[in-house]
Design a protein around this nucleic acid. Sequence first.
DNA 1: TCGGGCGATTGCGCATTTTCAATGCGCCCG
DNA 2: CGGGCGCATTGAAAATGCGCAATCGCCCGA
Lengths: 229, 229
Amino acid sequence: FKEAWAGEADCRNCALRSSVLFAGLEEADFERLHKPIDQFVLQPGAMLYYAGQQGSQMFTIRSGLVKLSQLLPDGSQRIVRLMRSTDIIGLETLLDQPYEHDAVVMQRTEICALPVAVVRELQARNPALHTELLARWQRALKDADEWITQLSTGSAKQRVARLLLRLVKDEPSSECELFGREDMGAMLGITTETASRTVAEFKRQSLLLETSTNRFLLDVPNLRLIADL
Amino acid sequence: FKEAWAGEADCRNCALRSSVLFAGLEEADFERLHKPIDQFVLQPGAMLYYAGQQGSQMFTIRSGLVKLSQLLPDGSQRIVRLMRSTDIIGLETLLDQPYEHDAVVMQRTEICALPVAVVRELQARNPALHTELLARWQRALKDADEWITQLSTGSAKQRVARLLLRLVKDEPSSECELFGREDMGAMLGITTETASRTVAEFKRQSLLLETSTNRFLLDVPNLRLIADL
DNA sequence: TCGGGCGATTGCGCATTTTCAATGCGCCCG
DNA sequence: CGGGCGCATTGAAAATGCGCAATCGCCCGA
């Protein structure tokens, strides 16, 4: 993905500064950032890293959507998490462990590449960053748990409904982009066809309204009924 | 569970010391442990904590088995993780967050209760403990991912087989205790009846051999065939 | 504009799982 | 020793999801 280099980040004045890993850094910390942080802009399909690969950087997602998936023994893939703006992926490199997942871009995505060495150095001196790291891990764990309880439990209809609701959770407009049925199936542990059938049925029932190409407005209250029953 | 108090721990000479959170502590650190660490012995069914409860301690499991589960909107439970010897539960209290799960003892379990304050203090001074904490979190995350890919994916037969194999993974004897079918279903996202039918069928096919009450010897190679196809 | 190509959708038969209910089994308590 | 209780097992019908293949729609490049 290195071809997608988009310049060096100005962390001090980062628009996402307050919600990002470096939130707690002070002027003195930035002094220590000798090498600049690189930014990239990635297109759908781009691969950030592979499972098993020994990496030396983590990534902050500035905008966009990245899927983390694992290969199953039968060759298919199971998507284990979706990562979005302000999330960090590849935390495991901080422990010198190889990446756990394949990380693939689903929508145009902007990222910052954080070299492990830099994070480690800052972490040693700045307890705020350290706490922030713990919090990141905890958030990831909570996400994983929700993935189990919400997206891997219940009937196909329930799962699809929950996934949709999750996609608009913090969109006041109740609108979202949908991804391919194959990915949807891989997230929910159902087949592509079942995913397709369910979405199609929701459309027919006007639970989903296509506002523009691949953008959908959701009937939140009724989807909630399906999700929770 | 406080009734089950079983004395104060001698952390310095803990039999599990090398594999436990305090592995990296030095003599000076132990000096700082003013208050002793309490130990408890818990019987099946005992509840360590509830989801949503604001706690102030984490627990190291010395021996036994604890399930972490979450309540679903429909009132049923989904078990999200199994924790065993040397695992830590309740890490989230370190971030002042309420417990994420219900923690219930499944087999006779010995635990040490670690007050958050103590861990925090030690952590501030001892970088090894700090790294150890990160590693714990990472381990939990990896477990959660495996729970998704192995125990929440595929047919009921596959899931049961994978669960069984997981139970004996580090038992050289390929022998294990089984839990109730209801719990099994809650782990795998299937109904109690399906769990029962599947286990019963495995027994008939001699993939499971009951050596003593509720102890089973597994036909690992054949179960593996079922698990991976 | 035409021919592919790709992904979504759909039909259909089959297998699996759920659901609800009945039955069986072992164990504890009186 | 005889319920009663909790849990496992089983049956049977209905619901759900899967697998495979055909079709459709849309966009893109020749």
